[in-house]
Each structure stands twice: as structure tokens, then as C-alpha cells.
Nucleic acid binder design. Structure first.
Lengths: 136, 136
DNA sequence: CTTGACCTTCCCATGATTGGAACCTTTATA
DNA sequence: TATAAAGGTTCCAATCATGGGAAGGTCAAG
């Protein structure tokens, strides 16, 4: 399997496969005589693992940790759970942050007539003028 | 007011003030004879506007649009509302994405005993093996 | 044998921000 | 007043994950 086939078999772009190799996330595969990378089932399996971890929002670094744990037959599941739970916490922090933004913006947008007149509570808020009251 | 004072007056780092100037988000201020940037109330006001917009998650580009609308006395509030509501939509899309990750991870973590044993449904999921059932 | 699709490496760009080096100016202190 | 600390200036680099593209080698089908 060359890199293009491995890419479509895993959903990881060829660019990213080379990148992951360059940063040491995945091992360098064998090459053909003409210097083409050759991938087998094992490599594809690893790439799918990486893709799934990235889809779940793990950073490349966290993914490397998880890959290491995956390949360590004697790991304790507690270690994996720790990585996962602290990632959950980070995600929830981010979600709360975004929700705070949405809440404020929804309120401002609600107060904005959205017509042809120039008066705009959204801009007033950004400018720090006439602070918009929370109740309405 | 020099850049350090403007920075502490607005919460925007001196580095970022220079950056915002370099990309044209804010105008270049006057300089002293010794080439120090000099800020007045107007500039501080603009910087606070920028900071607030960034805090609400607007990109620098969106912030530039909002700044333009703010300074355009004849704008329609509808224009501002459009920028805000499409930003809200983008934030909500992002939130939903993160919530999806959390949901999956919570489920996997719940199924993981988290003890000394190597069996780990989290890794199994990442590896694409033994897909964890959704009900439990 | 040519053509087109693929591979290789290399460099560059993104967005927002931080860090640091090298150097100049202002301020406070010994 | 000499000097040191603090803060200003510019410029360059790194972050993180990814995509774009150029220049050149390789492979398959027509």
C-alpha cells in the first residue's frame, strides 16, 4: 500500500501522514526501491487510531501518549482513564467558555433591533458604553 | 501614555498592540521624538473595544469589521446584528462538536474500570476494536 | 513513448500570541 | 553624575495542526 492508498484507507491525508512521521508520532515505514513509503495493516491500524483520537479532540501529544499506552501490553487502564478524564475536563472548560460568549452575544443580539437605524447595543457593549443590563 | 501604560489600561499586551497596528487593525499612533508610541483616550477606547470583541470570540477579522461599523455613524444596526448572529452560530457549532466528543469520552471513561488491569475500553475504541455499545 | 496520476522533499502560509535578542531611552538610585 | 534597572524599539522565531505548491522522480495505461 502506498501513501495515497493508506490515506484513503484511514481518512488521514498523505500530508498529515508524512507530518506525523516527521514528528515521531508514527514510525517511518519501509520504502520501495524507488523510495515510496509502503504501508501494511499494522500501519493502517495505527493511523486509524490516531485519526480517532484526533477526532475526539486529543492533541497530537496526547495521542502519542495514548498510542504508547496502547502498545504497552502491561499498562494499567487507570493511566488511560487519567488521560481521558483530564481531556474531558479541558473540553468542558472550553465549552463553558464558549457558552459564556454565546450567552452574552444572544442577549446583545436580542436587544439589537437589527434595522436601518444606527443605534446598536452590540457596538455599545463592545465600546464599553451604556452597559446593557442583564434583566430585560 | 506609552505602550506599557496603554497595555495596563486596556488589558491588551504591548506585543499585541504592536501586532494589531502591524496588521492594520488599529491605526499607528503618534510617536515621541525618541520614537515611543503615544496613546490617548481615543486609542485606549479602541483597544478596549478590540479586547472585548476578542473576549467574545470574534476573530481579528470580524473585530475589524465591527470596528469599521462602530466608526461608521451611518451604519445600520442590522449589519452588526448579522455579524453577531453568524458568530453565535459558529460558536454553537463548535460547542456541539465539543459536546459530541465529551459525550463519547464520558461513555468510554465510564466503561473503563480504571484500575491496574490492562483491559481498557477507551483504547479498544480508539483502536476500532470491540466497539463499545451505547446502551449499558 | 507519451501522458497523467502519483510519489518524493522542500519551503511557505495560516491565526493569534508569546519569547527573545540587540539596541536605545528614561527614570531612579548610589 | 555615573550607573543600573525598567521599559521602549525592531526583527526574527516558535507555537499547533494543517494545507498549498514547486521541482523533480516513478508508475501505469493508452
Amino acid at each position: 500500500m502506498n501513501i495515497g492508498e493508506a490515506s484513503s484507507a484511514t481518512g488521514v491525508s498523505a500530508k498529515m501522514i508524512r507530518y506525523y512521521e516527521s514528528i515521531g508520532l508514527i514510525r517511518a515505514p519501509l520504502r520501495t526501491g524507488s523510495n515510496y513509503r509502503v504501508y501494511g495493516e499494522d500501519e493502517v491500524h495505527v493511523l486509524r487510531f490516531v485519526r480517532r483520537a484526533r477526532t475526539l479532540g486529543f492533541s497530537v501529544e496526547e495521542t502519542a501518549t495514548l498510542l504508547g499506552l496502547w502498545q504497552d501490553k502491561s499498562r494499567a487502564s487507570a493511566e488511560v482513564k487519567d488521560v481521558a478524564t483530564s481531556h474531558i475536563t479541558a473540553l468542558e472548560t472550553k465549552i463553558a467558555e464558549l457558552q459564556g460568549m454565546v450567552k452574552t452575544l444572544r442577549h446583545l443580539a436580542h436587544c439589537c433591533t437589527g434595522d436601518n437605524r444606527p443605534d446598536c447595543p452590540i457596538l455599545d457593549d463592545l465600546a464599553g458604553e451604556h452597559p446593557v443590563s442583564k434583566g430585560h
